[in-house]
Amino acid sequence: MATNTASGVPVRTTPAVAPRSASFFESAKNRQQLEVWAIRLVLWAFIVVALFPVVYVLMISFKGGSPSLYSRSFIPDVLTLDNYSNLLEGNFPRWVGNSLLLGISCGFITVFFATLAGYAFSRLRFRGRRYGILLLLIIQMLPGTLNVVAYYRMLDEVSLLNTRIGLIAIFGFGGSALGVWLMKNFIDSVPKDLDEAAYLDGASNLRAFWTIIFPLVQPMLVAQFIFGFIGVYNEYLITTILLSDPDKYPLGVGVRTFSTQFNTQWTLFCAAAVLGSLPILIVFFLAQRLLVEGLTRGAIKG
């Protein structure tokens, strides 16, 4: 793992190459300019295609007229806020509330568990440490589609089927192995000397954790919370099976009732997609640095 990063990369040496002349240098500069313009062209082409759906949805969300099917042009003839006001009169605000409730609860539970366990895996020595995380990660590879049968039965057994509490239990407690793994890697990157110093001062594990580790991993906590929130926000398969009451749907599942194939309220759906995406987009870009670091520190280990 260590050897193939910095030191082990082979640098091929090609012997005896004629020194570059001045005129060659000139043309190399020109060629770089040309390269940069070619790259710009490719990037812009890619961006136009990639952002087409986003622009399209934004346009349609302000479109008046028949709410049902696609129309030939996606540039609205009349700009209107009708779609948005219709949305706010329906079930939409309730779905937003449900999503917030689910996402925030599950985010907190995930972060709490992942931090404690990540600390133990990173700093403490105990039996089962070596394969504990591997075991957690493998168990979590059960397809959710497999677990959902059992979830259904379990929630039914304790009369929590079709309740938001049941869903919070499943999502909050059911899925933090990846979080533990990322948190462990993050805590690994905090210098060991810091908590050694605390131990020398006579601090307990808990104290060392609370005063040394916790403040340093706060960026990761925020990142994990956001991941937890977005994970629940994006869940569809399990949610639709465990909830049957549209009043209890989170936003993404509720909005699906606008977009299904043969009964499409397309302009309404687009307005909902815009409203439902904006907060996530904003949070993502505000916290982007944390999120990227949180993921890549765990992912890139060399």
Partner: peptide, 13 residues
């Protein structure tokens, strides 16, 4: 940065 659950429905459209 956009939520999968909503954008996949956009792709469906």
């Amino acid at each position: 940065a956009l939520p999968f659950i909503l954008l996949i429905q956009v792709w469906g459209g």
